[in-house]
């Protein structure tokens, strides 16, 4: 098991958003996290790279093991954790003052990557994110000139550039049109050959299309976790069934 949580509880100002979640995430696979709004799925994701603690009043109990080390353990630097566990957000977040090239190189700069290696890594990351051909002629142009879908792939390239082991994606396609969504989904399937991916989505079709495993959250609890195919055809919990058949949410 590459990444696992043990009795993970996250709170906002003392109120739990997720309670005692224990879950093992398979390497080189896509794990989808689904559930109705407010169920804690985004909070769960943000605990995996120590982003939750940056939220106002955010606290965490329990353990998150990355290759056997508790990322919340004493002496662990959150900054180092985030370099190993990359993240892509709901809305594209290119840095507006940077060019396309600099956006991809942004994480490399804080990681102390030598300048001469940067060009090559930027190209590789953009290629991995299936964006290279579209932007190779304007690498030094503003990242804001790109379309929404391109911006989101740029953010994926930016996250990939630092060679994280895990990629967290928080509803990465919810702000995109269907065509751009499809491209991002294809990209995720390609990327899982090299990365462990955890994706939060409210789109059940998307979860069933791209993921290998699915966890269903409801009211802060992990209700069910299983292989995606099994969960969508034969859920074991009544609440899961109710949700995936569209009876609530």
């Amino acid at each position: 098991m590459h990444l696992a949580t043990e009795r993970l509880t996250a709170r906002y100002h003392g109120r739990p958003a997720i309670t005692e979640v224990s879950l093992g995430i398979r390497p080189r696979a896509i794990t989808a996290v689904i559930g109705p709004s407010g169920c804690g799925k985004s909070t769960f994701l943000r605990c995996l790279n120590r982003m939750h603690e940056l939220s106002d009043g955010g606290t965490v109990e329990g353990r998150v093991l990355l290759d056997g080390t508790d990322i919340y353990g004493a002496g662990v630097d959150a900054v180092q954790v985030r370099r190993r566990v990359g993240m892509v957000f709901q809305r594209p977040t290119p840095f507006p003052t940077m060019s396309i090239y600099d956006n991809v190189a942004a994480g490399l700069r804080v990681n102390g990557v030598a300048r001469r290696r940067m060009g090559e890594i930027v190209e590789r990351s953009l290629a991995q994110a299936a964006l290279w051909d579209e932007v190779k002629d304007r690498l030094h142009g503003s990242a804001l000139a790109l379309s929404g879908g391109q911006q989101q792939r740029l953010c994926i390239a930016r996250a990939l550039a630092t060679e994280p082991e895990v990629l967290l994606m928080d509803e990465p396609a919810s702000a995109l049109d269907p065509l751009a969504t499809q491209r991002v989904e294809e990209l995720m399937v390609t990327l899982k050959q090299a990365y462990t991916i955890v994706v939060v989505t409210h789109n059940l079709q998307q979860a069933s299309r791209v993921s290998d495993y699915t966890g269903f959250f409801y009211l802060g609890d992990l209700v069910e976790f299983d292989q995606t195919a099994r969960m969508f055809t034969n859920p074991s919990d009544g609440r899961t069934e109710a949700y995936i058949t569209g009876r609530f949410g």
Partner: peptide, 14 residues
């Protein structure tokens, strides 16, 4: 153990 495991925001820990 519960409170020790509660990690507050690490503002300025670095």
């Amino acid at each position: 153990r519960g409170t020790a495991a509660t990690r507050r925001m690490t503002r300025g820990a670095n």
